[in-house]
Each structure stands twice: as C-alpha cells, then as structure tokens.
Write a protein that binds this DNA or RNA. Structure first.
Lengths: 169, 169
DNA sequence: AATAAAATTCAAAAAATTTTGAAACTTCTA
DNA sequence: TAGAAGTTTCAAAATTTTTTGAATTTTATT
C-alpha cells in the first residue's frame, strides 16, 4: 500500500467510525485528514482532498475547533487561515471525554435527580420499580462521572510528571 | 410530576441521549420503555405507548435482542411474544461496551496494524509523520482494548480502576 | 476609502436514515 | 390441514440530516 492509499483508507475508516458514534462523517474525516497531516491545511486544501464544499469545510472545522481538537494557525505573509489538529492521542481522548461529560453526562444526572422525585403511590410496584430504576441509573452515572474526573486528573499528573522530569534534565 | 409524566420524560431523554451516541432514537426509546417497565410488554403495548408501527417495533426489538439488552419471554396460555429488558445497570454497561469493542475497536486495530505497514520513503517527513500517528493511535487503541477486557471480567468497581489501569498500561 | 481576498452564513437541494404498513410467512390450535 | 393469531420483511414514503453554493460579511492591503 502506498502512502496516499494508506491516508485515504485511514480517512475513510475514521469517518465510518465517527458515524457510528453520532459524529457527522465529514467531521470525522476532516479530523482524520488534519490528524495525519504533517502540515496545517487551508480550506482549499481540505476542499480539494475531501471533495467537499467550502461551506461544509467551514462548518465542520468550526465544530472541531469548538471541541478543542483543531487549532487555527496563521502563516506569516499569507492571509489564509490554516488548520492543524491536536496530535497527542491522550489529549484528544481527554478532550472528547471532557466534552461529552459536559454535554451529556452532567445533563442526564440532572434529569435523573428530578425524576427520582416523582410523586405517586409509594406502595405500588409500578412506582417502586420506576424509582429503583432511576436510582440505579443515577448511581451508575455518578460513578462514571467521578471516574472521568479522576481520569482527567490522572492524565494531568502524568503530563505534570513528564514536565518535571524534563526540567531535571 | 406524576409517574406517567416522569416515564414519558425518561423515555424522551434516553431517546435523545441515544441519538447523540449513534443509536436510532426509537431504539433508545424502546429500550428506555422496557427498562422502566415492571412487566414485560407485547408488540401492541409498545406500539401504543410509543405511537410507532408494528414493523418499527419488530426491527428495533430485534436489534436490542442482538445486543443482549432485551429478552423475549412467553406467558403461559398466550401466544404473543413479550419483551423484557435487562434491569441491572452494570450488566447493561458491560453488554454495550463488549458489543462496541467487538464491532468497532477490534476492527480499527486491525486496520491500524495494516496501515503501519505502508510503503514509502522512510526518510520523508510525510512518511514518518503518518507512521508515527498510526503507531500512537494503535497503542492507544490497544490500551483501551486491554482495559475493556479487564473491565468485562471485573466486578462493579471496574470503572473506578479503568482509567488508572489504562495509564499504567 | 476602495479593492481584493478570504471567511461565514443559511435557504434550498441532495442524501441518508428511519418509518410505515400491507403482503408474506410462521406457528399454533381445533 | 384450514384458519386464526402473531411475526417478519421490505419497497415506498416520510423525515431528518447533511451538503451545497451564492450572497453577505469580515479582514487585510494599497
């Protein structure tokens, strides 16, 4: 397999994977393209490579920047914006986990907290069953939430330690 | 909030969450409905509650059964099939993680292994950059894969230890 | 300030996904 | 084994999501 074929295949595969995780295929492909690109790319570069429109590039790049996965960079003596992806896989994972926690996990915990307060006949099987389900789910969600916090901290310590060891040298 | 309102809200919320994770909204709602239902439900019950067609119920129930999240049960003296969801939240989490590992993580590791073998000018920055990206991603994926294996075997405090074990390799 | 180059927006079009529902099929019962 | 009850299938319709591209806005240059 040549380098170009391999890049193409990676972009396709990553796009497909993204789609299975509720991420627009083009956004995932765009992320893949920037992730494997040694140089920052311009809107034109991306349009050309992925064969998509200017508006589409703009929209998906903005979204990736929102997630913190892509940076806008400027080349001196060039008015164009160039885009560059975060390359550190651990950082990428952390950014995605942090964002999904904020967007999905925290809101669902709020909702579950509300739903546990439902009114009804406390003796009925139906009522007890529902409250029990909400309780179980809330406990689970909170455990995941705490674990994610730990993970984000653990990763920072890991980076912090690395930084220290570099200074010592 | 009454019990019926709470159930409705849970089904809506769960459906929305599923959609953000690449799961068909109806499938997620159907799962929510069965999850909070004290009794197994028939196709008719589900059609009625979610206001969807027979074919739609059948398709989504089949998919949930494939994932291991829903069981088919029979009542004696009744020819209808009834459906019941797994109620243990930790079991549900394990089933989902196991299935996504099999469907997504393992295949991507296969692809990354292939892509690392790309041919090209080993001295070029472009080549080195690509191979480095694939290597990083493959290492990460394998770490996640191993952690998931441990998690599936472990008991309920798996998650607390998951990310730590990922960092320790 | 005028011009040019690039970025952004968003309504409409295209594409993809989901849903429907009636026909076909299966299973059970008398 | 005929009929009834229930399940499954899948082509077409409906809906949702994504993409396009021209008009508008922003930014930089002379």
């Amino acid at each position: 397999m040549t380098l170009d074929e391999a890049k193409k295949k990676f972009i396709q595969t990553w796009g497909g994977l993204g789609a299975q995780w509720g991420i627009n295929k083009t956004m995932a492909q765009l992320h893949a393209l920037l992730f494997i690109s040694a140089q920052p790319l311009s809107t034109e570069d991306i349009m050309e490579t992925l064969q998509i429109s200017r508006g589409n590039v703009n929209m998906n790049v903005r979204e990736l920047i929102d997630w913190g996965l892509v940076y806008r960079v400027n080349k001196t003596g060039d008015r164009k914006d160039y885009y560059q992806a975060e390359k550190d896989v651990w950082k990428i994972a952390k950014l995605i986990v942090r964002e999904r926690k904020k967007r999905e996990l925290e809101p669902i915990i709020e909702v579950l907290t509300e739903l546990k307060k439902v009114e009804g006949d406390k003796k009925s099987e139906e009522y007890q069953s529902f409250v029990e389900s909400m309780t179980q789910l809330k406990n689970f969600s909170e455990t995941v939430n705490n674990s994610v916090d730990k993970m984000i901290k653990a990763d920072e310590n890991w980076l912090g330690n690395l930084f220290l060891s570099m200074l010592k040298k």
